[in-house]
Design a protein around this nucleic acid. Sequence first.
DNA 1: GGACTTGATTAAAATTTTTAGTAAAGTTTT
DNA 2: AAAACTTTACTAAAAATTTTAATCAAGTCC
Lengths: 416, 416
Amino acid sequence: MSLLEDLLEEVSSAKTTIKRKSALNKVKLMMTLFDKEMLSLGELVQDVGLSFPTMNNLILDLHQRKLLVPKEKGESIGGRKPVLYQLNDGVFNVLCVEVERFALHLVVMDNNNNILFGRKSYPFEISTNNGDIEDLIQVIKQYYEDFGIDERNISAIGLSMPGLINYKLGTNQTFYNKNSFNISEYLQKKLGKHVAVINDVKGAALSELAYGAAQNRENVLVILMDWGIGLGVIIDGKVYMGNEGFAGEMGHMAFVEEGELCYCGKRGCLETIASGIFLVNQARQDIERGEPTLLKNLPNLADLQPQHIIQVANQGDQYAIDLIANLGYNLGKAISLLIQILNPESVVLSGKFAKAGSLITIPIQQSLNKYTMNAIRQKCEIHLSSLDENGYAQGLVRYTVVDYFKSNLDVLNMNN
Amino acid sequence: MSLLEDLLEEVSSAKTTIKRKSALNKVKLMMTLFDKEMLSLGELVQDVGLSFPTMNNLILDLHQRKLLVPKEKGESIGGRKPVLYQLNDGVFNVLCVEVERFALHLVVMDNNNNILFGRKSYPFEISTNNGDIEDLIQVIKQYYEDFGIDERNISAIGLSMPGLINYKLGTNQTFYNKNSFNISEYLQKKLGKHVAVINDVKGAALSELAYGAAQNRENVLVILMDWGIGLGVIIDGKVYMGNEGFAGEMGHMAFVEEGELCYCGKRGCLETIASGIFLVNQARQDIERGEPTLLKNLPNLADLQPQHIIQVANQGDQYAIDLIANLGYNLGKAISLLIQILNPESVVLSGKFAKAGSLITIPIQQSLNKYTMNAIRQKCEIHLSSLDENGYAQGLVRYTVVDYFKSNLDVLNMNN
DNA sequence: GGACTTGATTAAAATTTTTAGTAAAGTTTT
DNA sequence: AAAACTTTACTAAAAATTTTAATCAAGTCC
């Protein structure tokens, strides 16, 4: 049993409500500390809502149990520097499982974003026709074996995947949708750990919010430009899920009247004219027609991927630059609609195409200038994401820990 | 000095922090009671976060001061019926000022939505070229005089108006925008009352949330279909303002490529092909071309208004029905984009065109079926607003009271 | 270096929350 | 219709926490 589980046990086994309240306050302290990463005694008093003496005692107790540690000293504001407390390393270890179109990436991180077991990718295909979830379990077991991981050291599992994920039901209505199959419940049973499932784009938005370009902002649009186009909506400093968890399905906005057929069944979705898929298809056709471009030198045209286009564009390839500019222009038009509706303070561009830098941002900006009202656009800043792959895993850790606390406190009935 | 002001005075004049805390808790109690309208002692204990004995004492005190009253008994759930408390009538009286395109409507209501002085409309024009705010003040003074109102009985003023209202700066960037003129501050100085300013559409959304079709819902889109097209976004049970207060400018979404010039300066805005303005213009042209329609019988074609079109459509006029259907279809296309992005649980259709009933809802539904993903639309209900003009004023009262408390507690520094 | 801040810690006083018990006012069962 | 059970209302003593105050420690700023 982990240190944290001890604490939760203390809540449920408390004999008087007073002991229970004290134990709950310790949990609350831990949650606050995880949320804000590092706080002084005074800040904890404010955030948790207890007095100095009481908070002092709680901290003393949790320090003795090695759940938290005094880490460093904060900035002085004219007097003695405050001691900043932090959760101890390894209090909560998350196995991050990131499902991509053609791969699975795994890594184990603790609550302080220390990497305990390195990132490793496995080939994996998530099929639209209700693929077998057992494949996923097999890869996880393989990963445990590859790194010699003792399962008891894992506190919970965070799973990020594409698709329409109903966060209330735990289902993925795009993949694994047989009989409204509850993914997290099933994996929880099979792997014996709490499993938090989140849509990949919302995970990315969370990462930007916690560690990236959306830090300390309230209302932000995070655009994920990859094979598809995704949107994470941040409102009031939180990732907005929508009623069922389907918010942000920007790629399937109706965009072209009587346009191309999309794989979703509708016609003229944004993704049919602005996405990695579209660009790759377009490039293949154009190359076959003899378009002069560095992309021709690729050994295998069937293997053409968005990053290749970005790469040659960054080398100055005019064709690729035009291709990306066109993507930016159309994407910008769609983003205009979003800005007009949501009046965000900032738009963060992330995903593989963010690597194209100004080659993509300038066409987007141009579109925004044309298609949004002056007053609404004026103060809206456009930022490029600066997160690496670990940054995204950190967002997943964040979601998993919060989800774990939440599901436990629901059971413990926090409101007393 | 009003009863409520006495209470706020008690907070700021408290000598020890402990007296201050107690006074603040009384304010908190009043706010909670206003917010939830009617609560039992037990519910208040839960919502405000105090113990039974303490809450009992606070209630006793406020009851003696006539700030609250035991109103009726609640439903029994197997035992003694709880006494429900409510704010007393007349504790807070709001002068509601609703600015429309060509009229000003005024009414005075108290915190319990009792009408103290009847609704009266005055001719008024709000010009885009920085009209004179003194006109507004004159109308208010006229209203006071018409009803013989003693200003001391008015606690605050709620002003709802169209335009891009920056709720942080108190400016209206569409009207009265000379030197970033702070409307609420100016009126406050001139009229000696706290003035809360809100955009008309957001006010309507608030009304739907508190008293209308959006009641007890979390994520709702309120579409106001009138001369223009407005959108109120409700997220997590709150009206979402956007970073500056400009969220919901749906009428100026770029909708038609290279379309008609809109008065906002852009081309092809939604309002250029789907709005009351467009319908009236279209009808005028068609009638002149000899289109057979009941609208011909109108005495003065220059006076044609949306309600006339709705009226004859409800009488069975085929031309008007087609006109409205076309509006619904295009509007539905725009709403599709919103649903796809925000995954709301419900869409509320309000404004004058809501009176067209199924003549407008069915075309909208048809559009939604065509342009949204199945999974996202499936559980999204479409409702017609059922609020009357007083319903909208009630929403304004709500906003004003909350704004009043908030601005006072900011001053009093609630967080202690 | 000295005056002035702010932070940490401790102890007594004030206040609130728990806890417990009783009465009142309902509902449901027998 | 009476008995048994629930929930609300209210009161009072015990337990715990928050205020308040005081002291020392550790910085900043002039």
